[in-house]
Amino acid sequence: MHSVVCIKQVPDSAQIRVHPVTNTIMRQGVPAIINPYDLFALEEALRLKDRFGGTVTVVTMGPPMAEAALRKCLSYGADDAILVSDRSFAGSDTLVTSYALTATLRKIMESMPVDLIFTGKQTIDGDTAQVGPGIAKRLDYQLLTYVSKIVDVDLEHREIRVERRAEGGVQLLKTTLPCLITMLEGTNEMRFGDLDDLFRAARYELKVWDRTVIGIEDPETVGVKGSPTVVSKVFAPRPRSQRAEIIDLQDDSPKNLASTLLARMFTQHPKLEREIAKRAR
């Protein structure tokens, strides 16, 4: 069984700060991490390998520094890692990213057929959830998004059954391999890699593929030029014009603070008082 997991290296958004004057991202000291949602995809692929044997390949498209994210995946137990990197990719939107990743996957399939492609449900920097569906459509693979559980895989009949989080419930779906799964978060827990994998990850010669290796001839079809969307403006969110009204009576008891808050809030927002009074009934 061959699973390919598509991952992304992202800045840890919890630690991002915006410069108050220039309104630009202060990248200094912000660690680059594997997109946390992708770890659920990787762990699921590793679990299938535990059950059925086979190979787990991780792929990322990004700058040379994304190599670190791939090595981390190898240390968790992935077998092979490919970095797809080319200057012409800079500024690619989600449509072009799925184009380049699809070309990469086709290249991988030349040497080994792929049974399952995994992605996280979305990234924490872009939050679009568009690249997974994009790859599935381009490869004409069945698309299973927000999968919460892989129920079973029947390799002989090339069938898979999964539970998928739908809007008002859970769908139990059956489809055929190969297919693309975007994994829901919280569905598993990433293992600790063993020592052998850690050493292997450090020494492993991972593959670095540029645009021509994956068969994209025309640089105008990727990057900014190939992207249908264009960013026209980047700006910081407007601050609210007023700071909070601070209820802070020196050395006062919590009880007094609470009743002062209620009195002020209900005087200034009589509608809210009526809304809360409804709950008395």
Binding site: I25, P228, V230, V234
Partner: peptide
């Protein structure tokens, strides 16, 4: 929002 909401960006689809 982008970067986890740290910034906002305006995006156009001009040709399509």
């Amino acid at each position: 929002p982008t970067f986890g909401g740290s910034l906002l960006c305006t995006i156009l689809t001009q040709r399509h």
